[in-house]
Design a protein around this nucleic acid. Sequence first.
DNA 1: ACAAAAGTGTTTTCTCTACACCCATGA
DNA 2: TCATGGGTGTAGAGAAAACACTTTTGT
Lengths: 226, 226
Amino acid sequence: MEYYKQHSKFLVAVDCVVFGYENGELKVLLYPRAFEPVKGEWSLMGGFIREGESSDEAACRVLKQTTGLDNIFLEQVSTFSAADREPFVRVISVAHYALIRIDRYKKNNAEKFGAKWWGINEIPPLIFDHNSMITQSLKKLQLKAGSSLVGSELLPSKFTLLQLRKLYEAIYQRAFDPGNFRKKMLSLGVLEKLDYKNSTESKKGAYYYRVKANKAVTELERIVKY
Amino acid sequence: MEYYKQHSKFLVAVDCVVFGYENGELKVLLYPRAFEPVKGEWSLMGGFIREGESSDEAACRVLKQTTGLDNIFLEQVSTFSAADREPFVRVISVAHYALIRIDRYKKNNAEKFGAKWWGINEIPPLIFDHNSMITQSLKKLQLKAGSSLVGSELLPSKFTLLQLRKLYEAIYQRAFDPGNFRKKMLSLGVLEKLDYKNSTESKKGAYYYRVKANKAVTELERIVKY
DNA sequence: ACAAAAGTGTTTTCTCTACACCCATGA
DNA sequence: TCATGGGTGTAGAGAAAACACTTTTGT
């Protein structure tokens, strides 16, 4: 047991890249940092890992605190450990990304911290290495969306194929052919057609779909090729 | 500055999944653990992160110590942080994988620690969560090999297409069609044909190839589809 | 009437796969 | 001569991409 005592201990944090989707745009939730150093500057929401907690548990706790949401989709991205990534104090941080529905999260929780949603293309300079955490998270999200249906995490429970396509266009930052996208998605057999339409986004009206319950998590075949 | 003091600090380790390739088989370097608890049981090589060190730097140091090699290809895999992943002591560990040429590494360094190479399919039960570190590392290696040429890291600097194919078969644990594999690899334009042959592995003799210097690191197009 | 999305179908292109076939040579 | 890998070519299946076309309806 003595062996362990000679080694240094470190503060270990989690930082969360919270993705949301609104008005055809992929967005990230940012906060003005609450304490020194660099207090007031924009940053990801984060917190320190506690004694009995894994990094995932810590990230869930932070998300609960700041968005009011439980059961959020969450994935580890990478650990940032450069010795000088923060000034004054050595902190090792495990970055995660989360997917939430903007319409569901508790505004009052977030506003208490001064949170603001930023379009993925208008992210301001953030503290430390938080910008590269976002870059890496987006890559991981693209990988994820390429082999499983990310729709249910970011869209309302029922959605049109237009909405789903716009979401994928926002994630991949490129256009998809409407006809081909529809065929591809329907061919996967994970969408269930509902018997009513959305008429707000087109004259003709488009049927709503939802993700089949049992298929929601399953690993799928290729959706977007890369 | 006071803010930081109220939080717990942790021991942070790195563990290295060292891949090598020999006799047509992908292998992993394992060590009998040198200290309690579970002293003597098989484990990955690891060590604790030191004050001025990032996790990558720590992993490099550990690899230098145990294999005698510098400038090893190294990539972070994931951070393992379950509170009970080690008994008695809380340790958060950042897993990495490394690719080395078995013919180059310093046997005496490794033997001093009792190291032994294990075929990827004959890995014994390891301490803690080390088996799942290997599983995740293999997945990451497959992803890597699917979009860049891993040959130069695991093979001698010149190699035949048979050798390269056998390597890919070992990594993906499946067979590739000899003709198609050859065409695919050559079509990528990153291999340079040398003007002499290897005659030890076939009657006819096969030309050696090497990776074009400037293309070694480049991100390539899809090599293996998934 | 027109624009715009919904929805379907067709054509072209490209890549993966399977496999045939000849070559060279050591045993 | 026979087995084995080296090396090249080709035909077919299947997917992705491009795009034509018809339907519906609010303005």
